[in-house]
Design a protein around this nucleic acid. Structure first.
Lengths: 346, 346
DNA sequence: CAAGCGGTGGCAACCGATTGCCAGACGGCC
DNA sequence: GGCCGTCTGGCAATCGGTTGCCACCGCTTG
């Protein structure tokens, strides 16, 4: 990363040093007041005299005091914060989910924070561990964790899954089987006799599901399915995927998601193939950009905003009482037909 | 929001509700042992007899006990967490920043969380307040807060600004003056004698800066600048903006950002205007999608990933010592010329 | 039979804050 | 001067768990 010389080095700082951290007590002593006064200075400033407050703040600053959240939420109840973990925050397919979750969280008086685990199960687990103390509950979207580990986490934290089903854990999913059926029927009715599927990450539960559903529906409609991949679910991953599909003389491509599909479109254009005349392309998610790439992409749209909404509701329900309401919610997708899919070449 | 009937209602829950959760005490009582035994059952299983342990686990299970992570880590110091606040998480122009910040945070052993304030100063302030307790420091990107409030916050928290300059507060900015100069020179050299600027949000510091720089450079090069707006910095906002620009018989449009520019491109196409033959369009940020919209967008690209990297480094420096290293970092942008800008119509 | 010993589980003191309640100070008013 | 109300800050309880220390138990050993 070509950084200019003016960029400071990351200080190699062990933030769990043995040095005992500064507590309200320390500040109180330094300022010559009681611990409760220090506490109030931060949480309820108008409750303490301005002169005292300034004095306390000065002492706190001098000592480098910072309140310890964990203990804070020990005495008050909860932090009023929920965390939404996503594999890739820059993947527009999560935007709807994020927005829906945010709205609902905010409506209930909670703050939603997001964390990114870059498709890495390890990072995902680490985030849960790190944030566990700071938030009241988790939303895990497209988790890359194995079932066993999810159950394990479920013992220690409140959380809800999105795009993933695990027995006994509340979650919201989109009906991929049905959506895939819509895609395959669409292509079949356009005369395509074979479909090339470009697979997503191996650890993705959804990726596996989509392929299984596609294979099944295709066979039922006498269309022959082929699977290529896995490919990284990104625009960049599309180039190699497109080349592989061309090598197979594919007439219809179904990409694991829209990012990959857009990457494929670009590569096909580079290689001089016309879409949809020579080849049809369909994606999943209906992301930002799917309607203004060229040609606009046929893709499976899911009510992701509703999913976010529902997932937060579920989570809040968990937090509130132990009444086990409806635990698994299934939402229905629908195919948005645009210009990237057309009749099979003759 | 058309939610299916299977979606649970948001529990109207005051998250300080009376719903006391199950504690070790409860479990202990149910199992007929002491609280400490319950605690040990979970944290140090081999320390308790197997029969007792099973007994306790059964009781815990029956009551639905889940250990409270917050109090558990009451003794841990610092949260090892940084928060990055952005006005709109779905705006791809922040992706580079997010990625850069994440990398650097992770390299230093910190977890980065993101929060969205939807262009709202109130929400931004509220987030700072709510999260203030849960994180070790803040990165404020494109803050919508007035200078005074930023200074105020700076007294209570460690933080770094991005895309914003406030005296005495560390920050990372892109040189908008220089970037704008590049845009204007580009258009001027293509023969454009007037430039229509589509303004961004009024509360945006950057929006104001960009306009000022554009106005200044334009006059210097004898190009006449016009300003329209403000418009919401989104694709949807582009339609009205485009219509207004057409009304002005503009030949060159500079949009506050790429989202707006893409919206403008779409509207121009709808209205039958050819880009760049009839009209040129330039944006800012070089976001995801700017290279595959049609036509591909000429836009000002900034080293946003470096910005994220630098901002986190700055923040970590703040956390570590009070040694005031370099506090303000300026990064240089460069114009990425694509197909949306061309010679002025004759 | 007494001393020794490992294995269990309880008591109570924390962890680092928050908060209800109360007492002293201060000023205004009759 | 006495009474009263408002501010302000301290005491101590509390949040939910963890953990050091000790008592007790049943058994082996000398």
């Amino acid at each position: 990363m070509g950084l200019g010389p003016e960029t400071p080095q990351a200080p190699a700082l062990p933030h769990h040093g043995p040095a005992r951290s500064v507590t309200v007590q320390d500040v109180a002593q330094a300022a010559g007041v009681a611990a409760s006064t220090v506490s109030r200075t931060f949480t309820n400033p108008q409750r303490v005299n301005e002169r005292t407050r300034e004095h306390v703040l000065a002492a706190a600053d001098r000592l480098g005091y910072r309140p310890n959240t964990a203990s804070r939420s020990a005495s008050s109840r909860g932090t009023g914060t929920l965390a939404l973990l996503v594999p890739d925050i820059t993947n527009p397919s999560f935007f709807g989910l994020i927005r829906g979750a945010e709205r609902q969280a905010s409506a209930a008086g909670f703050t939603l924070v997001l964390a990114n685990f870059e498709e890495s199960p390890d990072l995902e687990a680490q985030h849960v561990k790190r944030l566990g103390a700071a938030v009241d509950g988790f939303l895990l979207a497209s988790s890359r964790l194995p079932d066993a580990q999810i159950r394990e986490i479920s013992a220690g934290h409140h959380f809800t899954l999105v795009n993933r089903e695990v027995e006994g854990v509340p979650g919201v999913v989109v009906d991929n089987e049905d959506g895939t059926r819509q895609i395959v029927e669409h292509l079949a009715s356009l005369g395509h006799r074979s479909i090339t599927y470009l697979a997503g990450p191996r650890s993705s539960w959804m990726a596996a599901h989509r392929w299984r559903a596609l294979e099944e529906t295709a066979r039922r409609l006498s269309v022959s399915p082929t699977r290529l991949g896995p490919y990284p679910p990104s625009v960049a991953g599309g180039a190699a995927a497109a080349d592989a599909a061309i090598g197979q003389q594919a007439t219809a491509i179904v990409a694991f998601n829209d990012l990959l599909a857009i990457g494929v479109l670009r590569r096909l254009a580079e290689r001089g193939l016309a879409v949809p005349r020579d080849i049809s392309v369909v994606g999943y998610d209906d992301i930002f950009g799917a309607d203004f790439c060229s040609p606009p992409l046929t893709t499976l749209a899911a009510p992701t905003q509703d999913a976010g909404h529902a997932a937060v509701s579920l989570l809040l329900g968990l937090l509130d009482t132990r009444a086990p309401g409806p635990r698994q919610i299934v939402l229905m997708p629908h195919l948005r037909i645009r210009a990237s899919s057309g009749p099979a070449p003759t």
